[in-house]
Design a protein around this nucleic acid. Sequence first.
RNA 1: GCGCGAGUGGCGGAAUUGGCAGACGCGCCAGACUUAGGAUCUGGUGCCUUCGGGUGUGCGGGUUCGAGUCCCGCCUCGCGCACCA
Length: 961
Amino acid sequence: MNETPHRYTAALADRIENAWQDRWEEEGTFHAPNPAGSLADPDKVATFGGHLLVLDMFPYPSGAGLHIGHPLGYIATDVVARYNRMLGKNVLHCLGYDAFGLPAEQYAVQTGQHPRKTTEDNIAIMKRQLRRLGLGHDDRRAIETIDPDYYRWTQWIFLQIFNAWYDPDAVRPDGGRGRARPIADLIAGLESGERPTPDGQPWADLDEVERAAIIDGHRLAYTHEAPVNWAPGLGTVVSNEEVTNEGLTERGNFPVFRKNLRQWMMRITAYADRLADDLDRVDWPEKVKLMQRNWIGRSQGARVSFPVVGMDATIDVFTTRPDTLFGATFMVLAPEHPLVPALTAPAWPEGTKAAWTAGQESPEGAVAAYRLAASRKSEVERQRETKDKTGVFTGGYAVNPTTGAPIPVFIADYVLMGYGTGAIMAVPGQDQRDWDFAEEFDLPIIRTVEPTPDHDPGLAFVGDGPAINSANDELSLNGLTIAPAKERMIAWLQEKGFGEGTINYKLRDWLFSRQRYWGEPFPVVFDEHGIVHALPESMLPVELPDVPDYSPKTFDPQDNSSSPEAPLSRVPEWVEVELDLGDGRGRRRFRRDTNTMPNWAGSCWYYLRYLDPSNAASFLDPANEAYWIGPRDTPVIAGTADPGGVDLYIGGVEHAVLHLLYARFWHKVLHDLGHLTSDEPFRRYFSQGYIQAPAYTDSRGQYVEAKEVVQTADAAGEPVFTYRGAVVNREFGKIGKSLKNMVSPDEMYAAYGADTLRLYEMGMGPLEHSKPWETKAVVGSLRFLQRLWRIVIDEDTGAVRVADVSPDDATLRVLHRSIAAVREDYATLGFNTAIARLTELNNALTKLEVVPRSVAEQLVLMVAPLAPHIAEELWNRLGHPESLAYAAFPLPDERYLVEETVTCVIQIRGKVRDRVEVPAGIAEDALRDLVMARPKVLDAVGGGVRTVIVRAPKLVNVVPL
RNA sequence: GCGCGAGUGGCGGAAUUGGCAGACGCGCCAGACUUAGGAUCUGGUGCCUUCGGGUGUGCGGGUUCGAGUCCCGCCUCGCGCACCA
């Protein structure tokens, strides 16, 4: 230790890193000036050559602190940010905290403290851990969603949405149709009679409650009584997006039941088309675009009405295959379908088959039993019992409009109430599910598409082919393939009034209220008629009151008879208020809403507040919006209109259909209402991989503490892992408490320093890949920094050891090739290859007796985005008192990028057999002559030459006869 | 089942338009320094080999002077969706 007192060690790194972090903070090194508002510095803005907004996903401060997987994306954005500052751009990079929500509340309940206390404690821990990483954040913009100055604007945005409706006919600036408009426009239209009321009654004749119902039926945020996802074990309802495909809550894995409750909804379905279409205008991973498209689930088809026999009613279905309507031999309704009771016949009609009755005396008994059984099943059970078709006959019949034939109507749980109309026309010939049901219940099967000759006669035919058995007196589809047959059928349905072409979506409206304490209160009140009133802006924020007990009322997770109880309902003095809403009606008594917003609310717009964090007059100054995220002249996707938005958003793929969809929706509403020039929030999104760490299971399959596992090798040299003497099994998985494989960044800071950790995480492999963490490999990154240090600093004396000499030609070539490659790699997020190139240069300089100052300085500048502290320190010791944060990134000199001579590879029959140094500009003929005279070539072509391929100057391939 | 992505040394991973496979790092081997080394430094390291060479990018075919890269057919793994009408 003593012999090299100035070696770069973890201890030295610790001193250097802390010192630079202090200096950056004192000098406000990473403060990005705004064009307008409280952070404005227009003169400084003008000094930059362009601007860049890089964004990390909004972190949630967990109680456990960070693990080494968390910083991966933060380091990557920091490298991009630092690199772009060195290119002369005004770079905005900051980080705030998403602090409302379930986990904080659960942690608070567990520890018996107020969620504000635990949340703030957790933020403090996370801030310390992240500061130690040396991220170049503008700390003036570190917002927190729980801050009333922030959620005041979350509530304000909610009111914007509440006070808006979607006008599908309004023309947008981009020429498309459909946009949000102020609700006042709708009311004015209703008042003037320009817009009729739904049932045609004059507006003036309606009472207050009736009017409110009509208006609320159009609002983009509305309360609605409908089946929602109720999780008794969590004590709250959750959105569709928060239910896993196993029918469990994303948080906590609690069973979810459908329950009719009045809840806040967001009319995201109004934006379904734009949310799907505009994916074409953003630069996102195809995989994530696909996930959103699947979630929106747009499908083209037709709505068809089937008259019910003996009733003045129709069963409406949605189908993507109207061309197969002639083959519809029965219908199936979801058990919950509202028409079921009316359809159910008093007695089994003539022709009822035994299999249709489930052994019951009457249709009523059969239907009731089946509906009861279906209602008792949780989502999990319904998902699990796939394939086996069950159902019962209602005793009712509907008429196939093409044939006039009565067809039986069944209920079955393979038809879901939540999709389409909750009813289907069953076409067993062309749909395997219907085929299975038809076989099970002995129903007729009519093929209406000619199957291919090799098609299994025991299966439905879903492929394309000519229509058969598809004609009546007015219409014949026979011979047509699917696409024209659909067209013809839709035209006929429309003409006859039986249906029309339509588009169906899987996307449902967004359930927006939660029965929890730790969230934003709704900025609304209800009057004595139950009518919702928005609070005037002057009453914002509606602060979250203290409650005697903030823990949610939870129930047995399986108890679907329970109902949610919001903690805010425990403070009647807060709930019951007397207010003057400024509507000219004076002080009146109201009830506040005891629900709170989901934590998606705060994270739906945080990136907007980053742009103008302390604006008290507005959520965001338009000048700041236009500057940072306004649409660009050069579109991010060629051939489309640039949507504007964040330049680079890096984060995990887990929010592909949650946060990323919700944020796009809010952004579009705010755009429609004229608050934003951009119409997408994130013009470029990059999905990072995960860091996985080894986890170990013992003989019982239990996870054991990974830190205590010892690795040895058996006789064959294969690794063996033992825990307290017992052999354990290694696997790789997500880092965390559950797998007992936590690795904290604090451990890495202590053992190696932050720069080493940064370098290691960026060097592991492509950012988008998931890759295994290996603590023992981190030393490679430390060695890199030690060599870098040694290039500049004498390890014995601590003196700067570079010399003011001119670099030799070979060194200049390595240097400039590195500069060109590293620039390219930084621009494309290829950090692992950038590090490889820097390592090569570093190793080349290590071998020099005398290191030229100019080369060392350029290396230091190039390393700076990755390992900023050591770079700043070396830059400083090299005699530059200013921070290198805004120093110009090295430029490659073209002269050193072209080689004078290159190694030409000589292949014989495609195999490398010889090499020769040739001038880079050698002519093809000269090279051929030179190569053909080589002894190895002469040996090989004794029998004559078939052909010679010359790719001057790098390759010649000689093919002998 | 449908869709998407990926398979390269012991490991993580590199390879413009098809043109020297394995950059860079870990590990491993040898050496230096050292009382010591799980520090640091230097060199080596795909596999096989009779040391000439042979062989090699999941498997099988194809195109080409030449294929990790392009085409066809499989296999395996990962992710997403899934009774979506």
